[in-house]
C-alpha cells in the first residue's frame, strides 16, 4: 500500500510548477501556517484587524441582508399555515401587549426601590433619554464557533455605533460590537465573553452576569453577586445595572432574566445564581438598538415617548 502514494507524489513533483497540482511546497505550508498564527496573536492583542473586518462586512452585509429578506417568507411559512390569518394578527398584538405588561411587572420592584431612592430629587427620571432603532437579525454565528454573535441589518448609516445596548420585547439581547455602514455585529449576553453588570430587582443587590455560550431553551446566564451574604430567591427578576449617562455599554433597568437556581460556592466565597433569560435567543428576529434621543438615522426611529420619527 505504502509505495503507491509515494510514487504519485514523486510524479506530481516531476510535473512540477503548475499551480493547483499535487502537494504544496513546504515553504508555502510554513508561510500560511505562520500567517494564521500571527493573525491570531495580532487579533488577540488588539483591534488591528478591525478595518479588515469592517471592509469584509461592508461587502458581505448587503448580501446577508438580501438573502435574509429572500428566505424570510419561507421561514415564516410554517407559522402562516398553523393559524388562521385574522387570529394571527390578533395573537401578535396580544402577545406584544402581554410582553409589555409583563416587563412592567418585572421592573415594579426596581421602580419602587428607585422611586424611594430618588425621592426628593426633582424628577424620577422616567425618560432615559434614548430612542430605539428597529433592526432585524440577518446572520447568526454557528455554535461550532463557540461564540454567540449575530448580524443585524442596521449600521452606522442608521445611527448605530459600537457599545450601544440591543434589546427586544422580552428584555436585554446584547450590545453592539462593531458596525459597518449597513450592518452591525451584536454580542449576545449568552456569549461566554459577555459580562453584564446586573442587579436583582427585588433587593437591588449588584452582581455580574456571564454567558455560557448556549442558545435555545437551555440558554442560561451565571449571576455572581458582589455581596456574598445575600441569597437571591428563585423567580427573582434580574435587570441591568448599567449607567445613566451611557458612558458604559448597557442601559440601566432592562430586564434580563429570572433566577432559576442558586449555588453557594465556598471556594470562591460568592453566591452564584443561574439565570434564565427572558429573550429566546434561538428565535431572535426583530430587535431595537437604544440610541441617544435625536440621533440622525436613515430609518424610522421609535422615540422615548413612543412616537415614530
Amino acid at each position: 500500500m505504502k509505495p503507491f502514494p509515494q510514487r504519485r507524489y514523486g510524479l506530481a513533483r516531476n510535473e512540477g510548477g503548475e499551480p493547483g497540482k499535487g502537494t504544496p511546497p513546504r515553504s508555502l505550508v510554513l508561510a500560511l501556517v505562520l500567517a494564521c498564527a500571527s493573525l491570531m496573536v495580532l487579533d488577540q492583542s488588539g483591534s488591528v484587524l478591525d478595518p479588515a473586518r469592517r471592509a469584509v462586512g461592508e461587502v458581505v452585509g448587503p448580501a446577508q441582508s438580501f438573502t435574509a429578506g429572500a428566505v424570510r417568507p419561507f421561514v415564516e411559512l410554517p407559522e402562516w399555515f398553523e393559524d388562521k390569518d385574522q387570529m394571527r394578527g390578533e395573537l401578535a398584538s396580544l402577545e406584544a401587549e402581554n410582553d409589555q405588561l409583563r416587563s412592567q411587572v418585572r421592573t415594579t420592584d426596581l421602580d419602587r426601590n428607585r422611586l424611594a431612592e430618588f425621592e426628593g430629587l426633582t424628577a424620577a427620571a422616567t425618560d432615559l433619554g434614548t430612542a430605539l432603532v428597529p433592526a432585524r437579525v440577518i446572520g447568526i454565528g454557528a455554535s461550532q464557533s463557540f461564540s454567540a454573535t449575530v448580524t443585524i441589518d442596521a449600521g452606522s448609516s442608521s445611527g448605530i455605533t459600537p457599545d450601544l445596548t440591543v434589546l427586544n420585547n422580552d428584555g436585554l439581547v446584547g450590545r453592539v460590537l462593531r458596525v459597518t455602514s449597513t450592518t452591525a455585529t451584536v454580542l449576545l449576553v449568552v456569549d461566554p465573553d459577555s459580562a453584564v453588570g446586573a442587579r436583582v430587582a427585588a433587593d437591588m443587590e449588584l452582581g455580574f452576569l456571564t454567558g455560557r455560550g448556549d442558545l435555545g431553551d437551555e440558554a442560561r446566564l451565571d449571576l455572581e453577586l458582589v455581596d456574598q451574604t445575600v441569597v437571591p430567591r428563585e423567580r427573582d427578576v434580574v435587570v441591568t445595572w448599567g449607567s445613566r449617562n451611557g458612558d458604559s455599554p448597557y442601559l440601566a433597568g432592562i430586564p434580563v432574566g429570572e433566577v432559576v437556581s442558586v449555588y453557594n460556592s465556598v471556594r470562591e466565597t460568592s453566591q452564584r445564581a443561574v439565570i434564565d433569560p427572558f429573550v429566546d435567543f434561538a428565535a431572535l428576529d426583530l430587535v431595537g438598538v437604544a440610541v441617544p434621543s435625536g440621533t440622525r438615522s436613515d430609518r424610522a426611529v421609535v422615540e422615548a415617548d413612543g412616537s415614530l420619527r
Binding site: P19, L28, L42, A52, S145, R178, T185
Partner: peptide, 28 residues
C-alpha cells in the same frame, strides 16, 4: 484539485469566515 489548491483555498476561505460578520473570535 489536490492538496496545494485545497490548502490555499482553505486559508482564503477560512480568513473570510474569520472576518465576515457576525464572527468575533480571533482571526486566523
Amino acid at each position: 484539485r489536490g492538496a496545494h489548491f485545497g490548502m490555499v483555498l482553505g486559508f482564503g476561505a477560512g480568513l473570510l469566515l474569520d472576518l465576515a460578520p457576525p464572527a468575533d473570535h480571533a482571526a486566523g
